[in-house]
């Protein structure tokens, strides 16, 4: 590398000026996202300044649309819940704070879910503001005092719906990245000591509660449709199977067992699950338990015990 020649001195300033234009948020004041940024130094460097605005705008808009598209694909349910307009505003905030610096376009979404969850938690714990901000003005929002919460507050969907959508999307991202765990077949010794031990869950495993029909919305509905609310909560496990990522629906009792087993020894988890049940319920639990255990093992959700 030391033998490589340095760049001509004019190259870096030219590219930095171009990069600065690209990273300028698009203008949303007209109701559509458009390039309206002036780049006089860049324009002067072009062969035909008369066409500069149109042609630089193509690059500028393409930059943002590509990133928005990538982030929509990373958080598809959350994007539908908050609506694409607000999602793009939130994505702009994220990209302003964390400009892409990885070669994989999908990685530009790293940290976005955490930022959104933190913002959702802030608005859930504080009183709403007196007025709804104008979310068409993405540019000014970037420089506002608390643009995340201002934008999230303007979302009309329930906070819990947004939070659940985000958790389901983030679980899918995690499943894609996680290694596939080999199926664990407990030995006789494992089984004998299992009540005193805590199960180890696969890195991709996430237990998700769903109060609205979110799982089916990994691909956006066309035309956009509201999210229907279940009469009772549903539960899903998001995980990495050998050749794909998957969402598997589990019964409420099984979900409770999975949650309990993630935080205490397996025997205590079963005791806690059985507590307070009448004899009929206890018998039903006893009948269901072997099937749940077999499913968790064959699906690769439990990969050992400690």
């Amino acid at each position: 590398m030391t033998s490589l020649p340095p760049p001509p001195p004019w190259l870096a300033p030219l590219q930095e000026a171009f990069g600065a234009l690209l990273e300028t948020p698009l203008d949303a004041t007209g109701g559509t996202l458009r390039s309206s940024a002036d780049a006089p130094a860049l324009t002067a460097a072009l062969a035909d300044p008369s066409t500069a605005r149109t042609r630089l705008a193509l690059y500028h808009e393409q930059y943002w649309m590509r990133l928005y598209g990538a982030l929509h694909a990373e958080l598809p349910r959350f994007a539908q819940v908050v609506g694409y307009w607000r999602f793009n505003a939130l994505a702009t905030l994220h990209l302003h704070e964390a400009p892409p610096n990885r070669v994989d376009l999908a990685r530009c979404g790293d940290g976005l879910a955490a930022r959104l969850l933190a913002g959702i938690d802030r608005i859930a714990s504080t009183a709403p503001p007196p007025a709804t901000p104008d979310t068409r003005a993405i540019g000014p929002l970037v420089h506002g005092p608390d643009p995340w919460t201002d934008t999230l507050r303007s979302v009309r969907a329930p906070v819990d719906l947004a939070r659940q959508a985000l958790r389901m999307d983030e679980a899918a991202r995690r499943a894609l990245a996680a290694p596939h765990a080999a199926v664990w077949r407990p030995t006789g010794a494992d089984v004998a000591t299992l009540p005193e031990r805590r199960l180890r869950f696969a890195p991709s495993f996430r237990l998700l509660r769903e109060d609205w029909a979110l799982a089916e919305r990994a691909v956006p509905s066309d035309p956009p449709a509201p999210f229907s609310r279940h009469a009772e909560p549903w539960f899903w496990v998001s995980f990495r199977a050998e050749r794909t990522t998957a969402l598997a629906r589990v019964e409420p009792g099984f979900a409770r067992l999975l949650a309990l087993a993630s935080e205490r020894p397996f025997g205590e988890a079963i005791d806690a699950l059985a507590q307070g049940r009448d004899p009929t319920d206890t018998a039903a639990l006893g009948a269901a338990l072997p099937g749940w255990i077999e499913r968790a093992l064959t699906s690769g959700w439990w990969i050992g015990a400690r």
Binding site: L4, L11, Q15, F18, A20, L22, Y63, R66, N101
Partner: peptide, 29 residues
């Protein structure tokens, strides 16, 4: 890329003879 940021686009540079040895050396590397 510039300024430590990835632009995720294929951006043009001037067709200036000063750039030829610079780019060629990088390509050969």
């Amino acid at each position: 890329a510039s300024g430590g940021h990835r632009h995720h686009d294929l951006l043009p540079a001037p067709y200036d003879p000063e750039l030829v040895p610079y780019v060629a050396a990088r390509a050969r590397f």
